[in-house]
């Protein structure tokens, strides 16, 4: 055995020792943690692509922010004084048209026109303001409840006849950001990654032989209540009353406000939806958890059927669980109170 053979053997031996690694990148954007995992890629390339995604998210955050100076807050200011507003950016027009369609499809259970109501409840701040608005103010607001139908878009011009209309894309932005991240990853030829934007997750490819595995947060404990494999292209989103909320006299008031009552929805602790890859599935995985959270219990199943949400998991206020058949087959429970609370649809 000469030296060359010996070196080749050593290299082969060491190659056998190498592991496919996952690079992880984190940033704080949209008031939450963004976590990007990239599997089996050159670290320099991974870092570059993660930064491209973070930069795009910063752009979206500054551009869509509902209460800090942004393109959306400029639109809201123009609507308040009944003025036309010119939008030069086709991306924003597309976003607004998409929001109009989504709110129509959900019978306005997803209503991004109620920024004024969210502000009234003190959620237009980095931290909730911890005070109840007066009931008369809420009732007053409901007499002229704005919806996205009140938003008129003609070519590049935008206005509304309802001065109460204030756009808040908080229920849409993370899903949209996921779809942007997917595009950036694919454009840069990254095949296997997991993107988590404040709990909304998209799987791109898979880490080796196995699938990406995701925990689903227990709404009342600091850990996962279940785990699920997120297949390539699938996305998952949850609306919960445990992230942004305040309590007064032991009652919890979350940021998920029922547009029909004017009060935070209190029939549910969390609603999780899972979507297979399709057009705008990342956006649906963010948006469609809202109607399932907010709508009264008796409407939830019908709403899920109408919106073609095959995989859903809802934890009601009393801990009862409503889960679709497909989701029940895919999920692995870690912490289920007892089987009796499980209702499979």
């Amino acid at each position: 055995m000469n030296l060359a053979k010996f070196l080749i053997l050593i290299v082969l031996f060491l190659t056998g020792c190498t592991q496919n690694t996952t690079q992880q990148y984190k940033d704080y954007i949209f008031g939450t943690i963004i976590d990007i995992k990239i599997y089996d890629e050159n670290p320099k390339k991974s870092e570059k692509v993660a930064n491209l995604i973070f930069n795009d998210f910063h752009r979206l955050h500054d551009y869509l922010h509902p209460w800090k100076p942004s393109e959306i807050s400029n639109i809201n200011d123009a609507i308040k004084i009944n003025r036309w507003y010119q939008i030069d950016d086709p991306e924003l027009i597309e976003i607004l048209i998409d929001n109009k369609e989504l709110s129509k499809k959900t019978d306005n259970w997803f209503n991004p026109a109620i920024g004024g109501l969210i502000k009234l409840w003190g959620f237009h701040a980095d931290l909730p303001e911890n005070k109840l608005p007066s009931t008369s103010k809420i009732l007053d607001y409901l007499t002229n409840l704005p919806t996205m139908e009140d938003l008129i878009i003609e070519n590049k011009m935008l206005r509304s006849n309802n001065k109460m209309l204030q756009i808040d894309l908080g229920g849409y932005a993370k899903g949209y950001a996921l779809s942007r991240a997917k595009k950036i990853l694919l454009d840069n030829n990254i095949k296997n990654a997991l993107i988590n934007i404040g709990g909304n997750i998209l799987a791109v490819g898979q880490p080796g032989e196995r699938f990406w595995r995701v925990g689903i947060q227990h709404p009342r404990k600091p850990r996962a209540m279940a785990t699920i494999n997120l297949l390539p292209g699938w996305s998952i989103g949850t609306s919960g009353d445990y992230q942004r909320y305040f309590t007064i006299n032991k009652k919890r008031y979350s940021h998920l406000i029922n547009p029909n009552t004017g009060f935070p929805a209190d029939n549910t602790q969390s609603a999780t939806v899972l979507f297979a890859p399709s057009e705008n599935s990342e956006i649906k995985s963010d948006v469609y958890s809202k109607p399932l959270f907010i709508a009264p219990k008796k409407f939830k199943v019908e709403l899920a059927e109408r919106l073609a949400i095959k995989n859903f998991l809802i934890i009601f206020d009393d801990g009862q669980i409503l889960i679709s058949k497909e989701m029940n087959e895919a999920i692995e429970w870690i912490d289920i109170p007892n089987e009796e609370v499980l209702q499979i649809h």
């Binding site: 976590d35 988590n196 709990g199 947060q217």
Partner: peptide, 8 residues
């Protein structure tokens, strides 16, 4: 780890 990321 028992999972890669958490949905919340």
């Amino acid at each position: 780890p028992s999972y890669d990321s958490i949905n919340y």
